[in-house]
């Protein structure tokens, strides 16, 4: 234990040195600047930028998300729209059929999904096998990039999004945001100031790599194919 406290005091000393060196690199006038001013400046940076984000999104965000993914720019990803959550098991079955996959999935342990009637579909306990399929619900979508956002929680294990070969993700139409920045407002509303889930992942397409000669290949470590189902929840 002695070793540990030595380390901490050494780290403290390094912390002091780093802050002292930062001070040395600045004009003395900076000392007087108050946190409120720094925050004001930071906010002004955001306010001045709004019109320069990509694309003037004229459509409904959900329409734009669908358009973007359909256009093929989001790697290894397909999308369909569904009028009602109760139709989900059927849609999943059709997807499995289409891709010639075994009739079993790993389902996110979240009530809106588990309370659906999955009929004779097998429910997996893990994603060890090849061609496994996971089904989960995203918290949000982002039209600009064709992304979905998933927060870790008591019903959302992080790992299930990275181990399956096929990944089916539902996203509610009303939760699709326009731009990346819009997420920060929602996050503030969902979690409060200075708070966030342990893990927040923006997923934009299938796992891929360009590490060998710059050539794009899908399914590096994670899913090889992503299927987004946009649910009309109006």
């Amino acid at each position: 234990m002695k070793h540990k406290s030595d380390e901490l005091s050494r780290s403290d000393q390094h912390r002091k040195d780093i802050f002292a060196d930062i001070k040395k690199g600045k004009p003395a006038s900076n000392e007087a600047i108050k946190p409120e001013q720094i925050e004001r400046e930071a906010q002004a940076l955001l306010d001045n930028y709004v019109q320069d984000r990509p694309f003037a999104l004229s459509n409904e965000p959900a329409d734009e998300l669908v358009r973007r993914i359909t256009s093929g720019v989001v790697i290894g990803t397909t999308i369909e729209r569904l009028d009602c959550t109760s139709l989900l098991p059927k849609a999943v079955e059709i997807f499995l059929d289409k891709h010639d996959l075994p009739n079993s999935i790993l389902l996110q342990p979240s009530a809106p999904l588990t309370r659906l009637s999955w009929g004779d579909m097998g429910l997996l306990a893990n994603l060890d096998q090849e061609n496994s399929v996971s089904v989960c619900m995203a918290d949000l979508g982002i039209a600009e990039t064709g992304s979905v956002i998933i927060h870790s929680s008591e019903t959302m294990p992080v790992l299930m999004n990275f181990l399956s070969t096929y990944q089916i993700i539902t996203v509610r139409k009303s939760t699709v945001l326009r731009h990346l920045e819009d997420y920060s407002e929602i996050a503030l509303r969902l979690f409060g100031p200075n708070k966030s889930p342990r893990n927040t992942t923006l997923i934009t397409g299938a796992s891929g790599t360009t590490d060998i000669e710059g050539e794009l290949v899908q399914g590096a470590h994670g899913p090889r194919h992503v299927h987004i189902i946009c649910l009309d929840d109006q």
């Binding site: 990509p54 966030s196 992942t201 994670g222």
Partner: peptide, 11 residues
């Protein structure tokens, strides 16, 4: 690309 496939905030 416009964005990477996985943009993750760990906390």
């Amino acid at each position: 690309a416009d964005i990477t496939q996985y943009t993750t905030f760990h906390n």
